[in-house]
């Protein structure tokens, strides 16, 4: 009994109920494995791809229209085939996933910053500010978010910055509503009163006492949001109002391939689409696992 107990964070984590459930959940393990692979590919992809699909100089038109490697006429260098410009689909997918993941992650970061801040303030202070923010949220929820995004992107033109702005403008509502709701219940807890009694200012009560207690919900929505933002971006790009042509994302690749789909070049469009499905599916599975594990209301 007397052996010294280490209180390292890693050790606590490895012995937690959370980690135990994780080990026993095949979906969680598989989905996180897929996501780690996708992220590693996005980071180190440029070192292993056969060409830089953005670099027009490295494309060779004589290598266009190659089917995937396992089909007749396939080329072993181009595992998933090439498109009408001789661009390697696998390389394009890996480069495209960098754009998609960047938009998904940074989009969620910006959205959550705006949404959480508004939710915390509205929930904690209440009153007129709360009313105004929540009515704006209600109005916004009355519009289909894709419509708002299309409108904004049509107005501002395709660029990564604009798409991040559009995602933030359509995404903050969900954060604000959930965070506000949580804050309403957390602020009635006695430890919040206790913090006031100790002499904490409102600012540090919000940041130090309330925010950590709504963090679990935030983690869960954020995970699921990354998936849905990647989808939204892909849809916008597919419709031609997403990322600019010079930085193709997965959605853009689908859209490009769509033009030649009926000429029998199915691989140009299907593989990027499949990759989106795999990423979003893995994110959603992991998000569901986190929701079940972290949400005390479901326990």
């Amino acid at each position: 009994m007397n052996q010294p107990v280490k209180h390292g964070r890693m050790r606590i984590f490895l012995h937690s109920e959370f980690f135990d459930h994780y080990k026993k959940s095949p979906t969680a393990i598989i989905s996180s494995f897929i996501l780690v692979t996708v992220i590693l590919l996005a980071i180190f992809g440029p070192k292993i791809t056969v060409q830089n699909p953005y670099d027009l100089g490295s494309l060779n038109l004589s290598e266009a229209f190659k089917p995937p490697a396992w089909m007749d006429g396939g080329d072993s260098r181009f595992l998933l085939g090439t498109d009408q410009n001789g661009r390697d689909i696998l390389s394009a997918i890996i480069y495209g996933s960098r754009v998609s993941l960047f938009i998904g992650l940074v989009g969620v970061l910006l959205t959550s910053l705006v949404g959480i801040t508004l939710g915390l303030l509205a929930g904690y202070f209440g009153g007129k500010f709360d009313t105004i923010i929540m009515r704006i949220a209600d109005i916004q929820l009355a519009f289909p978010s894709m419509l708002i995004a299309l409108f904004l992107m049509g107005l501002t033109g395709p660029s990564i910055r604009n798409i991040l702005i559009a995602l933030t403008l359509i995404g903050w509502v969900r954060y604000t509503r959930i965070v506000r709701g949580e804050v309403l219940s957390v602020r009635e807890k006695e430890y919040v009163d206790a913090a006031k009694v100790i002499g904490f200012s409102n600012g540090s009560i919000i940041l130090k006492q309330i925010l950590p207690n709504v963090m679990t919900s935030i983690i869960v929505i954020s995970t699921l949001r990354v998936g849905s933002f990647i989808m939204t971006e892909a849809t916008l790009s597919f419709l031609g109002v997403g990322v600019p042509i010079s930085t193709p994302s997965l959605g853009m690749l689908c859209s490009d391939g769509f033009k030649v789909l009926y000429s029998g070049l199915w691989w140009v469009s299907i593989f990027p689409g499949l990759y989106i499905v795999i990423i979003v599916f893995a994110i959603n599975l992991l998000g569901d696992f986190l929701r079940d594990e972290l949400n005390p209301k479901l326990k």
Binding site: E190, D193, V197, I198, G199
Partner: peptide, 24 residues
């Protein structure tokens, strides 16, 4: 008032289950 609360006058609440912040 914040200089008095906690420093000069402090308070103990009814329910110890909820008066400590669970995340710290």
């Amino acid at each position: 008032m914040n200089k008095i609360r906690g420093k000069k006058i402090s308070m103990i609440f009814q329910d110890p289950m909820t008066s400590l912040n669970p995340v710290y």
